[in-house]
Amino acid sequence: MDIDRIDQIIDRHQCEASSLIQILLDIQSENHWLSKEALTRVGEKLQVPFTRIQHIATFYKAFSLVPKGRHEVHICVGTACHVRGATRILDTVKDVTGIMPGETDMDLKFSLETVNCLGCCALGPVVEIDGKVHGKMSPGETADVLKNYE
């Protein structure tokens, strides 16, 4: 993401320090991660110390300081999914992809995250891949679904 684009986003928020989180969210959603250059630029323009930006970028779960994989796998571990066996689904995904929640594999194929509730409790346990929700999953089905992604 180039500096001009970052500046545009900052300007859209009137360069207000109170919009810092909103600006980072916009950059994250366009670029899928926050590079050090992006954070530094935001800090300069808003005149916010880098320590504070770094704390924000690591405090909130929505931000990533490393590039994400091509496919974002979200395992719902909300209470409803938990009592319906989400842990077993998560274990399966960990086995198949070889990564832990919060990680991205070496080929940048999958990024794995756990999420706390996708609001589809009726369909638990739920796996969301690139925004598509797969409901009522079993460990076996989960492994099968993951095979469809390149």
């Binding site: 571990v77 909300g78 209470t79 409803a80 938990h82 706390n116 509730c117 609001g119 409790c121």
Partner: peptide
């Protein structure tokens, strides 16, 4: 609405 397993506010 951070409670896992709650989605009334969302609805």
């Amino acid at each position: 609405e951070g409670d896992p397993g709650a989605f009334m506010d969302r609805a």
